[in-house]
Design a protein around this nucleic acid. Sequence first.
DNA 1: GGTTATTTGTTCGTATGTATC
DNA 2: CGATACATACGAACAAATAAC
Lengths: 210, 210
Amino acid sequence: MNEKQENKKVFLEIVSKLKDLIIREKLQPGDKLPSERVLSEMLGVGRSSVREALRSLELLGIIETRHGGGTFLASSQQYRLVELLATFILQENQSIRDVHKTREIHEKEAIRIICANKRLRELPVWESLFLKIELETEVIRDHILRELLIASENRLALRIWIQLAAYSAGALKKVTTEEEKPILQRLLTSLRLGYEKEALKAYTEWLDYL
Amino acid sequence: MNEKQENKKVFLEIVSKLKDLIIREKLQPGDKLPSERVLSEMLGVGRSSVREALRSLELLGIIETRHGGGTFLASSQQYRLVELLATFILQENQSIRDVHKTREIHEKEAIRIICANKRLRELPVWESLFLKIELETEVIRDHILRELLIASENRLALRIWIQLAAYSAGALKKVTTEEEKPILQRLLTSLRLGYEKEALKAYTEWLDYL
DNA sequence: GGTTATTTGTTCGTATGTATC
DNA sequence: CGATACATACGAACAAATAAC
């Protein structure tokens, strides 16, 4: 796929080559990458340049390095969207709003998909969540939302949502209050019955408590 | 409070210090950062470590370096992050179905947002597109969809969509056929009138021609 | 448990190409 | 054109952490 792009910068080429390597070797999270010296020889570049590329990927959270151990594909693909966005890019209100809006897009779509599918509506997890909300004083917001995303059976959307949720985690309330309980239960009940409109309405109401 | 964050990694400390520097000195896009050697002395670290930090920020698009010129705060602060992470996330996620579904999520949401907003509905671009479809034999699908995403005024969603669209570009038809014309025109007309339901229906019909 | 080899962490020196004045 | 400042890139060297035996 990637023809020789004649990148002026060596380290960018290495980043690209590393990406190819990860795909070609089908490396899984936690797998070990070749050592810096081996990469340096393999690619015919200096070790310093290899390090510059590896560091860049490390800052992104794509790889993890252990001193004396080696370099590994990140085990928790949480990436570092959170800190990076927060510290560098997301000073503007517009960007913050975009993150929340995009989260909401995926959450609402998950609700729609579940409502439209009998099998998904009847998953036992909704009853479990209902009881959990009933019994526990605090429920973690994202836990509920994650279940929605998981149930909607779109792994890519789930992955995107996880990144966005990780960012919002710092800015939003983490747990639900007593007030939200009835709203949430209405959401879950509507969901199980397939009442899309009511479910979405409850979801929208819930957003007001953020 | 405490400046010293006790990061194990020097390069991460430098990244952090650079962030502080940018804020403290109130550097604006395009402004010059101290040279590598100066930074190296200022922070009491080796030049290679400084370079590793600078490269990381460069990959993120936060700074730009000009060979022989110096290092500058990036003029266009873009979501480079989205593009970078997208390549990795999309590669891990080998399900093309998920890519299409996620595309559709964003496209449908864009339609909803436009329908719900008078100002967006009245954008001249819809009439232009309508005429274009009328006059030209072939219209590029993604061109139409991109306009929808742009109009929905969520830059993050737009960037995500662009990545998804690029990824699925090889698998889908690129241009519209004669048959699709009336459907598309119905979509655009409904959009301008704010008939969300009809617009979404036309969109769904259009999907069948993919 | 200890020794050795491997690997990353960090710095430094050197040579080279580029930009600016 | 020349001089200077700067980034680019490589490689050597040693420290420190880990892994292997």
